[in-house]
Every structure is written in C-alpha cells, then in structure tokens.
C-alpha cells in the first residue's frame, strides 16, 4: 500500500515537473555508469564482427582487452588471412600492427576519421568512445520501458568548445546501466548513424548486450554487427599489454 502511495506521489511529481523529474538519477552518472558497465574495470572479449553491404558481407573474429575507458588493444583472430592484425588505443591515439610486414604504424590525424577495418565504426569511434562522459552535458528527456525495466532517454549535448563532431547524441540507458541505443546527430539535429543493442543476455557474469549494430541513417543495407562470443570482466590484466611491444605479439 505504501508503495502504491509512493508511486502515485512520484507520478504526480512527474506530472507537475514535466521533464525535470526530481527523482531521476543524475544523467551524467547514468552515462558514466553505462560506459563503465560496458567496459568493466578490465575486460577481455571475443567478438564476431559482420560488415554488411548490399552486395557483399564479411565476417571476422576479434579478440579484445580493455582497461577502463582509456586503453584497449585488439587483434583479429579470423579469417586466417587477417589473423594477427592489431590495434592499440591509448587515450586519443591509435597504433596499428600488421604481422605480414611486422611493423607498427601510428595513425596520423588524417586517418582517424576513416573507417576501422572497413566497418561502420571509424577509428575515432574507437579512440574517442569515452568522451561521451566528459565532453557532453546530459539531460534526461524521457523514460520508456524495455523488458520490464525503466529506460532513460538521455539527450547529450557537447559542451561548448568540446572537440567532438556530433551536434547531439541520444542515449537510451536502462536502469541497470545497460546501453540500449546510442544515436549520433549532426548540428541540425539530423540523425547520422545509430548504434543499437539488439540482444541482451547473461555474459561474463552479468546481463550484457551481446549484439551491437551500427547503422548509417537512410542506409538499410549498410551496417556492421558486433556479436559477443565470450566476455570476462575483472581479469587481472597486466599494464604491459597496452604497449606497442605487446601489440607486436598477438595474444591469440
């Protein structure tokens, strides 16, 4: 009974306050929580990436290690032809390694906006995925439900002077920190591309979105899907893995 009352009170508050619901969680914390939830403190994953085009499709398997929001390293495990190709990200910078020529190359700024391995993710998407937390101001604009859980719709606007290309991002984050959708808009608030989490399952000891789909707006037949095969969190990963020397030695 008490709970019903409380719920009613909350509802009335919402009705009065419109968007600015006082009982909502802090949106920045929500976003930060979602990013941390996705990454964990450390994580190790095997992901299958599918690049789909109208006339063609390609699949590869990627092994990835991440540490917080700053560092990550990943190698391609399959197909055999690309096996061993690696990418190291430290902060805003990226290096790539190719086993055939046995060389590490630092990506020049001109390549950062190019697509990563031909996918719909750009190098920047990978290198700067964490700046959603610090470079934007967040506001909860709506709430929905997803599989019985509350989903907060968050509008994230870049802070003045933030070196980010998007005019706006719209995030849908479930109350259990799971990111459902991340949409990227230009400055005219027009959708450019969107990342949608399509399947949420138990993985690595927690509920996790196991299927990610990045799709450009207005391009039905052009998308990239990430499918998590395995995932582990909280591993004790040595700092040395996120180095150029380690990039040259694929852990496959």
């Amino acid at each position: 009974m008490k709970r019903i009352f409380a719920a009613l009170a909350v509802l009335m508050c919402f009705a009065a306050a419109g968007h600015g619901r006082i009982n909502d969680p802090d949106p920045r914390e929500l976003v930060k929580g979602a990013v941390n939830y996705l990454r964990g403190k450390t994580s190790q994953a095997v992901v299958e990436m599918t690049i789909h085009r109208p006339d063609w499709q390609r699949q590869m398997t990627i092994k990835a290690w991440t540490e917080g929001r700053e560092n990550s390293i990943f190698w391609i495990a399959a197909p055999p032809k690309d096996r061993g190709n690696g990418t190291l990200k430290r902060g805003d910078e990226m290096w790539i390694f190719n086993p055939k020529v046995n060389r590490v190359i630092k990506l020049p700024p001109s390549m950062m906006s190019q697509s990563w391995q031909g996918s719909d993710f750009s190098n920047n998407d990978l290198a700067k995925s964490d700046n959603i937390v610090d470079q934007y101001t967040h506001e909860i604009i709506d709430r929905q439900t997803h599989q019985g859980k509350t989903v907060y719709v968050i509008r994230s606007l870049p802070k003045p002077g933030a070196p980010v290309v998007w005019g706006m991002q719209e995030l849908k984050i479930r109350e259990d920190h799971i990111l459902i959708r991340q949409a990227f808009f230009d400055e005219d608030q027009e959708l450019v591309k969107a990342l949608t989490m399509e399947k949420i399952e138990m993985l690595g000891g927690r509920l996790y979105p196991v299927k990610w789909k990045m799709q450009k707006a207005d391009q039905k037949e052009e998308y990239t899907v990430l499918d998590y095969q395995s995932l582990e969190f909280g591993l004790d990963i040595s700092d040395r893995i996120f180095t150029i020397a380690s990039l040259k030695n694929p852990r496959l």
Binding site: D92, E93, P109, M112, P158, G161, A162, P163
Partner: peptide
C-alpha cells in the same frame, strides 16, 4: 573540429 599534430607530436584536436 580541427585535428593536427602539436609540437610534441601528440594529436591535438579543437572545436
């Protein structure tokens, strides 16, 4: 957004 290498060869970007 402009991106370039700064004097220390670090990537600099600014809006």
């Amino acid at each position: 957004i402009l991106m370039s290498e700064d004097a220390a060869h670090e990537m600099a970007s600014r809006a």
